[in-house]
Write a protein that binds this DNA or RNA. Structure first.
Length: 832
DNA sequence: AGTCAGCGCGCG
DNA sequence: AAAGCGCGCGCTGACT
């Protein structure tokens, strides 16, 4: 095939790039009649060209039939360049697109995306089907990004597979067979019969409203793919609250009528089914999730995109079928159902594929069965239940925070000029944000501190790249800098104190006020697939679906420890708030994995490692160590255990505790630390070897962390992967133990008919709300359960380091008191 | 008017 | 010749 190259303009001076390149205006190359055009940021290096051609070939496309070109025609990898240069270069690329006239364009990286579609934001537009002048454009990240972070390789290749499947017009082996619209009374009756015969159901709901407790909340439609006992596959869609639905006026009744059939279906599958189950349960259908495809996908590969769409498009080559779910009520009901139904049908095929993968990987299957799906059920109920918040305290404390902030700001005005003297005051921006004093606005702050108060500029941010050249970065106002400035001006201390009250007043308190429901309970969302280590994450309600500016959220895992805030949450009347905490769980896991003899001895003797570290750092006997000192030691322990260097230690010691260490002192402390615990460095070395050999590490129960970045050519990226290889199994195992503790406690509560419910977890702690008169039986059960998990029975793991759980009890979280072992076992005998 | 990255800070 | 890990939210400032 003949390769052609169009004529560029070697004399081009439209942007700065021409000044520093060997060849100005290097045009693309490839066959004239190419069906596919590949656009990179700039002409590819040999490495990237090879990488692209290899991957195209593996995806089933012929690389020699592709036209390769770039958004920028001047090749210089050192110079920074962005959309400004892309704009200057646009005419040349447009000429090529016009002449070659490809049907498909594959854009690599944000600049190429911008050049070919005008959109910016590669992570958002990645693998979306885009169009430009009748040509189909698909964008993904650049080979340079993949080369730097090989961890991206899998998802990059799956993007290319998707692209190839599109070009070949192959919709893969999975074809949507069409569906039944349940739009008459007769069909509704037939649906009941179908559900009665359904053995396996993949289901999905479409909803409107903030959450299921929102008075405006409603289920727009419910769809399913039913596999019947005789093996028939039927896709169906039931219109509910949608204006075009025949059941619009009595959609709740319609749902209740199918509830009893739904309940009996043995296998109930969904993608992120916690969401669907919450909505269905709210309206009377006790939907289960026996297999969640999203959670399974995440367990199998924590680095891959876990959404149904990316999973299905890359696995089966199906183009994105999604609609704008913000406008569900405005589109025809059949369109909604068609979308809703496809979700369930593709999810069914995803289920078939990943179930097979899980069966191959037995240890992951056990985690999925014993932890993931069990925890999912408890979290559905925890999220539905919510956490009780003390409205009265909330009002009082919110006012305290606002007053404190206002008072501190008032004090600051002493050093702020009168409006008439606002010489050099930052002029009004587009949104008029600088028109007045604004301590949150970094530009205003810069003016005030560095121009008006004349404090020295100690650090600058990133230099800014403009079309005219590089400008120096803006003076930094970060905390570390402010701490240095503190002795120079009294305003700085006040400014630093203000930050906390501002955060309470802008972030925490308003969110709690807005989100408490009519029963004074706050509902959060827990994600079982929100972290790479298997920890839970907590987030604002349905964050990726609800895109409201004022959509405030509650993350129960980041409630400040300050009693003013933590003291707001508690137990409803008749119940007691209980927090069960694993004591130093990560360090105990480190002990288990590293086999360090000193640590083993300390824990087996019931001693406290943080205290021990504090004692030798301070040079004092353990009896004279304060709570504060122990906290500092905690930072030392965790830092060094997970590979922190002396330099970073100096930094965090100052930023967190205002302790000044010289680099030499830090080096000495670090050296002493590893002399004290001789088993740690050999354990680090072992983890490094494992990750270098296999590209992944596993936790004691078999949870996998894939770390393909270990194959990077950049030593910094490699070193990062090595530290992650050290930390991951520890964090993973500790968090799985916590989940197991929650699961086992719930089982025992159920068996003993104890009215006690898990409210959620905070990584190494679980929060409960327990009927007060049941505490006497419940507390010893909790202590015993947490300290004796069925690790041996479920996973064959012999944990030979003692595990200790602490229990705090109170009306409110913030003032819950820790109980002694005697108090736990004799709770009813404690005189109050 | 909406979107996004960067920063700072809340938590373990 | 260097090196803690894991999260989510609100705000600003820059951009479309």
């Amino acid at each position: 095939m003949k390769r052609i190259q169009l004529e560029g303009d070697p004399g081009c001076t439209k942007c700065k790039l021409h000044r520093d390149v060997d060849e100005v205006c290097e045009m693309g190359f490839g066959p004239r009649n190419a069906e596919v055009m590949v656009v990179s940021k700039m002409p590819n290096s040999d490495t990237y060209q090879r990488m692209i051609e290899d991957s195209l070939l593996r995806s089933g496309l012929d690389p020699s039939k592709v036209f390769y070109t770039s958004a920028l025609k001047c090749r210089n990898f050192e110079l920074s360049s962005g959309n400004a240069q892309v704009k200057a270069c646009k005419d040349y690329l447009d000429k090529e697109i016009y002449e070659i006239d490809p049907e498909w364009i594959l854009s690599f990286g944000n600049e190429a995306l911008f050049a070919t579609t005008g959109h910016s934001g590669i992570m958002k537009y990645r693998t979306k089907e885009l169009e430009k002048n009748g040509r189909k454009v698909i964008a993904t990240i650049s080979p340079a990004a993949v080369h730097r972070n090989p961890g991206q390789k899998t998802s990059w290749e799956s993007d290319l597979q998707f692209f190839a499947a599109q070009v070949k017009g192959k919709s893969g082996t999975v074809k949507f067979p069409g569906m039944v619209f349940i739009n008459t009374k007769e069909k509704f009756e037939a649906l009941k019969t179908l559900l009665r015969e359904t053995e396996l159901l993949c289901y999905d709901v479409e909803t409107v409203g903030f959450n299921e407790f929102d008075p405006q909340g409603a289920i727009v439609s419910l769809s399913g793919t039913s596999i019947t006992k005789s093996g028939n596959v039927v896709v169906w869609g039931l219109p509910l609250y949608h204006p075009g639905s025949p059941f619009r006026r009595n959609w709740r009744i319609a749902l209740k009528q199918i509830a009893k059939y739904f309940k009996k279906i043995k296998k109930q599958i969904a993608h992120n089914g916690k969401f669907d189950a919450r909505w269905l349960r709210r309206f009377g259908v006790k939907a289960k999730v026996t297999f969640d495809t999203m959670l399974a996908c995440h367990l199998l590969d924590e680095n891959r995109l876990k959404g149904l769409k990316p999973q299905v498009t890359s696995r089966f080559g199906i183009p994105d079928w999604s609609v704008d779910t913000d406008k569900l009520l405005d589109m025809p009901i059949k369109q909604v159902l068609w979308y809703n139904g496809q979700d369930t049908y593709y999810d069914y095929h995803l289920y078939l594929e990943i179930r097979a993968e899980l069966v191959e990987k037995r240890r992951l299957l056990r985690i999925f069965k014993f932890i993931t799906m069990e925890a999912n059920e408890l979290l559905i109920e925890a999220e539905r239940r919510g956490i009780w918040i003390d409205r009265q305290r909330l009002a009082t404390n919110a006012k305290i925070a606002r007053d404190m902030r206002d008072e501190l700001e008032q004090q600051l005005h002493k050093w702020i000029p009168e409006p008439s003297d606002k010489i050099g005051w930052p002029h009004q921006g587009k949104r008029a944000k600088f028109a007045d004093v604004n301590f949150n606005a970094s530009n205003w702050l810069r003016w005030w501190l560095f121009d008006y108060l004349k404090l020295p500029v100690l650090e600058r941010g990133k230099p800014k790249d403009t079309t005219e050249g590089e400008l120096p970065g803006a003076p930094s106002v970060k905390e570390a800098v402010m701490l240095e400035l503190k002795p120079m001006h009294p305003a700085v201390k006040i400014l630093l104190d203000r930050v906390k009250w501002q955060k309470y007043s802008s972030s925490f308190f308003p969110a709690y006020e807005e989100l408490a429901d009519e029963n004074d309970r706050i509902h959060t969302t827990f994600k079982l697939a929100g972290t790479v280590t298997g920890r839970l994450s907590s987030a604002k309600e349905d964050a990726d679906k609800v895109r409201r500016v004022d959509n405030r959220g509650v993350n129960i895992q980041q409630v400040p420890r300050d009693p003013l805030v933590r003291g707001l949450f508690g137990a409803a009347p008749g119940f007691t708030f209980v927090e069960v905490d694993f004591s130093q769980i990560e360090l105990r896991v480190v002990t288990f994995l590293s086999r360090d003899r000193t640590m083993l001895r300390l824990y087996r003797n019931g001693e406290d490692i943080h205290l021990a570290t504090a004692a030798w750092v301070m040079g004092l006997p353990p009896s004279r160590i304060t709570k504060e000192d122990r906290k500092k030691a905690k930072a030392i322990n965790f830092g060094f255990v997970y590979g922190m260097g002396a330099k970073k230690f100096v930094l965090t010691a100052f930023e967190k505790y205002e302790l000044k260490f010289s680099l030499d002192e830090a080096l000495e402390i670090r050296k002493l630390f590893f002399q004290q615990f001789k088993g740690l460095l050999p354990w680090h070395a072992r983890q490094r070897r494992i990750v270098n050999d296999h590209g992944r590490v596993t936790s004691p129960i078999g949870r996998v962390r894939n770390l393909p970045d270990i194959f990077s050519e950049d030593w910094k990226v490699r070193a990062e992967a090595e530290r992650q290889a050290i930390n991951s199994p520890v964090q993973s195992f500790a968090s799985d133990m916590n989940l197991m503790a929650m699961i086992e406690s719930a089982k025992k509560f159920k068996k003993r008919k104890i009215e006690g419910y898990a409210l959620g977890t905070v990584h190494d702690a679980t929060l409960f709300e327990i009927k007060t008169e049941h505490l006497g039986i419940a507390l010893p059960i909790l202590k015993n359960t947490f300290e004796n998990l069925p690790l041996k029975r479920n996973f064959g793991v012999d944990l030979d380091v003692p595990i200790v759980a602490d229990i705090k009890v109170g009306t409110h979280w913030g003032d819950a008191q820790e109980l002694s072992e005697w108090e736990i076992n004799n709770y009813d005998a404690i005189p109050f």
